[in-house]
Amino acid sequence: MNVFRLLGDLSHLIAVIILLQKIWHTRSCAGISGKSQVLFALVYTARYLDLVSTYVSLYNTFMKVIFLISSYATIYFIYMKFRATYDRNHDTFRIEFLILPSVLLALLINHQFSFLEVLWTFSIYLESVAILPQLFMVSKTGEAESITSHYLFALGSYRGLYIFNWIYRYWSEQHYDIIAIVAGVVQTVLYCDFFYLYVTKVLKGKKLQLPA
């Protein structure tokens, strides 16, 4: 463990707390893409199946359980409890175009052709594009509530911080995982224009308005 990975995981934890708090407090999931949340649940389910087979640490187990529970709780809020506030018309990204290529790529490019390894690889590839429906929805509505943009900033920062973790681990332990690194860079790059808008607008107290 290193400070970059710890900050990354905390940033991820803060993101899911912000999201759940926003939905619960405002009793509304307006502006939130249910499709992205479905993809995140898929990502964590595929990646954290090893919870039953390998024990890494209390921290590792605790965080995996938190991310699994929060992703399913968010789906429950969006599609059941507060489904009246779910903006279905603006959440139209075709997620099958993200899932199928991730499955194919995981079957073709992986470290080891075993069940858990291919699932892990699938989850890494899918996570790199899982935010697209959410970013697409923000671009369609042309704006995002500031709490939603704080959520996106924290979520985007998590994998960005992991890049520093991978650099650190390569330099200090000669350890690297090219699949996680490439996917993590793609994932972080997808947030770049949002990061720019967040820093130039939201931090100045303006609403996040995307050029329509």
Partner: peptide, 10 residues
């Protein structure tokens, strides 16, 4: 080395 040992990252 690629990451065949136990995966310790989230």
């Amino acid at each position: 080395t690629n990451d065949n040992d136990v995966k310790d990252e989230l």
